[in-house]
Amino acid sequence: MDGKEGGTGAAPVEFADYLGMPLVEGLTFVNNSLRGAGLRHRVKIGASGKLVSSFRILKMLALGADWANSARGYMFAVGCIQGQACHTNNCPVGVATQDPLRQRALNVPDKSARVARFHANTLHAIAEMTGTAGLSHPIDFLPHHLIMRESDRDIVTGQEIWPYLPNGFLLRDEQEQFGYLDRWKRSCAESYEPFDAHIFDQKATGM
């Protein structure tokens, strides 16, 4: 899944500011919804959206992603300056353009070496942090490995903020504090539109 933070930077401002769901919230929702429906073991989740650092990649794995797609850092390594002209064919550094003249700004031998180094260092940092946490594989990260500061005095674990909810809890009609069951009951297999009986009745009667 893609968080609203992702994209080329050339999206309309209103879209970038207001549409979509941030990656952390979206990933948590998808992971727990699949767990609640008893389907998590049958669906793989990929996560992307402004993932540049190794830590951000590991955080997404901890929150439920099976893999993470990181593009922005590689774009920077190849020379992107976020000119927000991707859709105009006038990229000033030759990265996102079909214009032969502008493409000359992209030095492929030099930039390819930079991308390779960025990739190697990203994987090295992931391996170091995985070992430091006492884990043997990055996919072993879980929410409780994340420690978040809430105030000057208080810290909480990721499990308190982004918990993995029990498998099958939606099918068992188990109420929980995060509102998943309410959303589940409002959903409809025939439509992506949230179903609310009260609002539906108002629309149907014109009241």
Rank of each mutant, 00 (worst) to 15 (best):
D110P: 04
S53A: 10
M60R: 14
R183E: 05
C91N: 07
H41Y: 00
G20Y: 07
V13H: 12
M1P: 11
K203A: 07
S53E: 09
G9H: 12
L106C: 07
P194H: 07
Q103Y: 02
E193A: 15
Q82I: 12
T132D: 06
L106M: 08
E14R: 04
S151G: 07
R104V: 09
N167E: 13
A113P: 06
A11C: 00
N121C: 05
A68P: 12
C80S: 08
L63H: 10
F118Y: 14
M75H: 12
R149K: 10
A65K: 12
D173W: 07
E128M: 05
N69R: 08
H145C: 04
A133V: 01
K185L: 10
P143A: 05
W184N: 13
P100A: 05
V13T: 08
L58K: 14
L135D: 06
L39S: 03
R172D: 13
H198L: 10
Q175I: 13
N107L: 13
I57A: 13
N31D: 09
C80E: 05
T28Y: 00
S187G: 12
N121E: 15
T122Y: 02
R35Y: 00
G94L: 14
S112L: 09
D154L: 14
R42M: 01
F76C: 11
A85N: 14
L27T: 07
Y180Q: 01
D66G: 15
G36R: 02
V52M: 06
I155Q: 12
L61P: 14
A116K: 06
M1V: 09
I57R: 06
R56I: 00
N167T: 12
Q177E: 15
E150Y: 10
Q98L: 14
R35G: 01
A85V: 08
V156M: 04
N90L: 15
I57V: 12
H87R: 09
R42V: 00
D140N: 02
G20K: 14
M207D: 09
K59I: 08
V30I: 11
G46S: 14
A65Y: 12
R117A: 03
Y164R: 03
G36W: 01
V13W: 02
G131F: 03
I199Y: 10
Q177T: 15
I45A: 00
K50N: 01
W67C: 14
R35I: 00
N89S: 04
G64D: 11
C91M: 10
Q177R: 15
S54I: 01
R117V: 07
G83Q: 15
R40P: 01
A204S: 10
L106N: 02
F178G: 03
G6M: 07
H124S: 09
K50D: 02
A127M: 03
D2W: 11
A71I: 11
E150C: 05
S33R: 02
L19V: 02
I57T: 07
I199S: 01
I161M: 01
F76T: 07
A189C: 06
F178W: 14
A116E: 09
E190C: 14
M60Q: 10
A105G: 09
A127L: 01
L165I: 10
N167A: 08
Y180R: 07
Q82S: 11
G64C: 14
L51T: 12
Q98C: 15
T28L: 00
S187I: 02
P163N: 01
Q98V: 11
Q103S: 13
M60I: 05
L19W: 04
C80Q: 10
Q98Y: 14
R149I: 06
M75N: 12
T130F: 04
D182T: 04
L123N: 10
I57S: 07
E25H: 04
D173G: 08
